[in-house]
Design a protein around this nucleic acid. Structure first.
Lengths: 243, 243
DNA sequence: AAATTAAAAAATCTCGAAATTTTTATTGAC
DNA sequence: GTCAATAAAAATTTCGAGATTTTTTAATTT
């Protein structure tokens, strides 16, 4: 749990970008949970983290409370915080509901999307493609981060013209929940898969304004992602870590 | 904003029921927002609330952070917390998505429900009916609270056998969001409505295991509720309060 | 040796004061 | 009188020490 090494420069810039220290702490801890530096189920001791992230205990608790909302952290009565555990049932549930929300938002977005929307989809797809080219050679942690960001941006662009803030909010929560599993799957990836082609197909259907096809492809895309996730090592052992 | 009068006994018991002071503060503030004692859009000054709820600033901030997650409070950078504003567009969005989530959960619940589930639905309906009988005479704030609790319990019982924790979680968030509007509508209620019959019909369809009918009735129920809410006074003026 | 109790250690939770930042009020210049 | 700059006030944000609770360790009894 120690040694989440980060350069002093990284720390300084992260602190400057955030409006408050709480926001900074929130982002850092969240990133460490999503990247599994902080393992599912492990305890989050406020006293330890205080030195790790260099913030006061109240600030830290506030950041953790925000993460409880995102369901990336759970808090138990008088017994502190833990990283939310992972399980097969959980990711199945997440992906199942993601299909519902994502296709609903996509359908509406395709209907309402403007020329500007089309441009943003094409741009996001292009950026994602460039990162994927580089990944084919080697899979470094930095590339995983970049790919995650581009993948998120691409799917975001597709559904961005939905008129329902609540729908987008919930789909965002679920997307980040699945991100944790997806990053683990990227590390010990076993199933080969042409994700690039899947994205291209969704993009083309969306630009053709073929909502039915785009939604069908999206559901297949999510199903395939789930089947890759189901195989990750962390789910085989009985999940949770650190007593 | 002052004078949220509460008896000393109420305070003491609420503090005892909660495992932590944060939980206590969370519940109290949440209740005051849902009942609109704290008005939509109004500022939540930590210093004032500290004396009002009799807790320290860190404890209070932590409770407010949890409410930010529920989207009942919004926090702006270096400028403190506010009660989340209300708007017509917001409640339309909430109710629209509630129809999707609630019917999905209901369908699954009807399919999976046991005899025990049927019993809990009948029991919840009965409790709700008893409160509704008393309301017909007079509408006091205490009865509004009781009706809200029973209404929530009834709808909860109906969908309780859904197998998707995430679906239930999101529908819970939306239910409480709509609760704020519903309580306002109960105060200046204009449209007469046989809510009791609507509930009875949904209950009967659910017990008949007629998912299609139960879902259709639920959607109509939500639609009618929305049309009542659309007429509340607070939405007519430009919503937000307190500069 | 296992179980119970008591003491010590560690961790969470809570508080209010100090540091920052924003807002309001005052002063001075044009 | 309006605008800008400055000073004072008010509010948010942050911190670490103290109070409570939980956990661990040690001692005692059966």
């Amino acid at each position: 749990m120690n040694n989440l090494a980060r350069s002093a420069d990284d720390l300084a810039s992260a602190r400057n970008n955030a409006k408050t220290l709480v926001e900074y702490a929130y982002r850092m801890i969240r990133e460490d949970i999503l990247s599994a530096k902080l393992k599912p189920g492990s305890r989050l001791r406020v006293e330890h983290m205080r030195t790790e992230y260099d913030v006061g205990s109240s600030t830290l608790r506030e950041a953790l409370s925000l993460l409880v909302a995102d369901r990336l952290v759970v808090s138990v009565g008088q017994r502190g915080f833990r990283v939310a555990p992972i399980s097969l049932a959980d990711i199945q549930d997440i992906m199942d509901l993601r299909k519902v929300l994502e296709t609903r938002a996509l359908r509406e977005s395709i209907q309402l999307g403007t020329d500007e929307w089309e441009a943003s989809v094409v741009a996001a797809f292009h950026r994602l493609s460039k990162v994927e080219e580089r990944i084919d050679g080697q899979m470094t942690p930095e590339l995983v981060d970049q790919w995650e960001a581009c993948n998120n941006a691409f799917h975001d662009a597709l559904i961005s013209h939905s008129s329902s803030p609540w729908l987008l909010h919930f789909r965002d929560v679920l997307y980040h929940q699945s991100e944790r599993y997806r990053r683990m799957a990227l590390v010990d990836r076993t199933v080969p898969r042409d994700v690039h082609q899947e994205h291209a197909d969704i993009k083309d259907a969306a630009l053709d304004r073929d909502a039915d096809a785009a939604c069908r492809l999206t559901e297949e895309h999510i199903d395939r992602t789930l089947s890759v996730m189901s195989n990750i090592a962390a789910l085989a052992e009985d999940a949770d870590a650190d007593a």
